[in-house]
Design a protein around this nucleic acid. Structure first.
Lengths: 220, 220, 220, 220
DNA sequence: CATGAATGAGAGTTCATTCAT
DNA sequence: AATGAATGAACTCTCATTCAT
């Protein structure tokens, strides 16, 4: 886990750390990285700009610190699922539910994650070096390989493309909870109440994914 | 089709229009909306800033004009497919291929589209009012409803969630061609050569989607 | 002659150019390079900061533009002397008087030149690449070599060290007119009225220099 | 000897005092007074900023303390020469050599001295009140007056202007050892190896000075 | 005495937009 | 219609200095 904040930041009370990061998350989520104003974040967090720069060397470092924290949370969630019992479908469902829960709990954090995909910020995502994505990818790979070995899913599927498709669906689900744009899009597809019935979404998605994985009838 | 540019813009030669928009697309894609510099765009396009503001009332209007043009292109592509023969799978495959082609041909345009999902720009996506998304959603709806009526796909699927899942997969495919971040992500999942073999991606995705749609054996 | 200002600066009225540079000279001379404030210079010159940055890419560029202008003035003066008739002593006296005149006319410009010797600004003096100094050095070299060939000055002198000594004396004379510090120093050496009688200084210095150059009696 | 540091500074171990001043000298020499950062100096010296301000009332006081120390060193050197035997030329040569030695030994200290001539720092040089310069001036005055009385040097010379010229030459010699700018200038005049042969410089300068002082042949 | 976290005014620089020509 | 010089608010970041511990 690389550290993008200075030593000083580690030494202040956890409560204050959290307050600063929370404020920053809110600002970055609301205005994007280039639009966020460090002075405003400092003021809202109740610290001076000077202090801000004692904690983080630059606006970018503050941003990256936030991302790293988010990674920490994601990793924990993933770890929990990794150590839970259940077959492949139960585990994928856990993933879907965890993603949903996470997006609901930290929508701003997830919005920031979406902003990170902007080309102007690609040098940052390069810094993060896809660590998180690698963990997720390996998780699915293992899951699929083992299910295939047990004959539980269609042997003709390409395990890696399949893993990507599943993760893509889950990622888009999260975006639909956190980004104004994707939320509207979801409403257009599913109807205005789309976001009220989480359970329906999960069942719909799991139906789709199960169908995709299970050994298929020959068409026709 | 709403118009975000001034009358004057319509009156200048199409070639000049295109040059201005192309330059703007490149700048917005490279730097994001807040990072792009209108004065730089004007200079690179070979017009004066004064002229720029004669054509577009603001930076935002220029941006929205670009999006509208992109919509036009998408609509055409969709229309073509709508009027082509073929069953649901053939038509979805057309969609996948069209999406792939479009993303390959206009990666910068698509990157801009991705940036539009940033919260700082949500007031713009609200202005665009999901027209494009509505068209796509209705297209899939019709496709699925009719295939279901003909008994060609699993009747237990939720048509609307299914439509969303399919479009999500296609959208993510496009992002993978246009955004640095998603490209890296794809490589992590599929391997470093992920983007070299378009055909493999299409087959993999179609395998996944077909499985999801076809009437399934009971698990177990 | 390299140019450190942008094209735009060349296009504004000469009177305005001069006003901006004069204001800048005053500020840089009074506060040194790091101490000078660009926003203040712009305000005092009656232009906006934006305009300032349209003319000069940075504080450093403004500074270098000033130096280049000073070089231009120096070069002209040197050229005049180069084309005047007279023996070596008459010509050196012309140099002394020109230096004196220049320092009296543009004390602030010369103060800036002195500041340029600070280590913090050495990257700038490196940019200027000693062009001015080279011209002066060659001027003296020619003068001394030719006078030596004619047997008018002591053949035992090292021509180059001698040239340096003469130029050092003249440079220090200029500093004494422009820098508070060197002015005080001069008063300590010569008395409180040191700067009132320019003629006395010239005669004193020329007496010193002549003695140094003329063929000497053997000591003792 | 005025004191610019607080009492506390006198009470800490001499070794610590020296470490602080040495660090400060290095920073001031490298960045100039306005460019130097007190917090950085404190950190590099291994003390807290709080302690720094317990020892010195301000950045300026630290700077002045350094200058005073330098004065102390110079005074000692001058005193040594004052008490050495030898005629005027031997003693001036001692001065030249001492200046050379000092500049070689403490180039950073001397660079700071040069920076002090910047107008932005003139209020400081005023504080120092030319004590050092007065001592030097009186030293030369005595030397010249006595040599003149003994008929050893040209009686037509202005003793005070002569003293200034000699000291100017020596000062410039020192600058040539310590300032990037003057070093380059010396190379332009004397050649790239200028600084390698100290002996040659001394002989060249002494030749120049001796000629200037000795009773001269009538020109022509 | 010593510490070093905190302060906040102020620096250099950018850029969307206006408007006289 | 076209130009592009001009504007100035707003941004990120620095650093001398203070003061609670």
């Amino acid at each position: 886990m690389e550290k993008y904040h200075k030593e000083t930041f580690s030494r202040i009370p956890a409560e204050k750390q959290q307050r600063i990061l929370d404020t920053a998350v809110a600002e970055f989520a609301a205005n994007g990285f280039p639009g966020a104003n460090i002075n405003v974040i400092a003021k809202k967090a109740g610290i001076s700009i000077g202090a801000m720069y004692k904690y983080f060397g630059s606006k970018e470092d503050l941003f990256l610190t936030i991302i790293e924290r988010a990674h920490g949370l994601l990793e924990e969630a993933l770890d929990d699922i990794d150590h839970s019992p259940g077959d492949i479908f139960q585990r994928i469902e856990m993933m879907v539910r965890a993603a949903q829960r996470y997006a609901r709990a930290f929508p701003e954090l997830h919005q920031i994650y979406l902003d990170l995909t902007s080309e102007g910020l690609s040098h940052m995502s390069r810094k993060l070096s896809g660590k998180m994505e690698t963990i997720t990818a390996r998780f699915y790979e293992k899951l699929i390989d083992s299910a295939m070995a047990q004959g539980r899913i269609d042997p003709r599927l390409d395990p890696r493309v399949t893993a990507l498709c599943i993760d893509n669906l889950i990622l888009m689900l999260q975006y639909s909870y956190t980004s104004d744009y994707f939320r509207e899009r979801m409403k257009i597809f599913i109807g205005p109440d789309a976001l009220l019935d989480d359970e329906k979404i999960v069942r719909g998605m799991m139906g789709f994914i199960k169908g995709a994985l299970l050994t298929q009838k020959q068409p026709g």
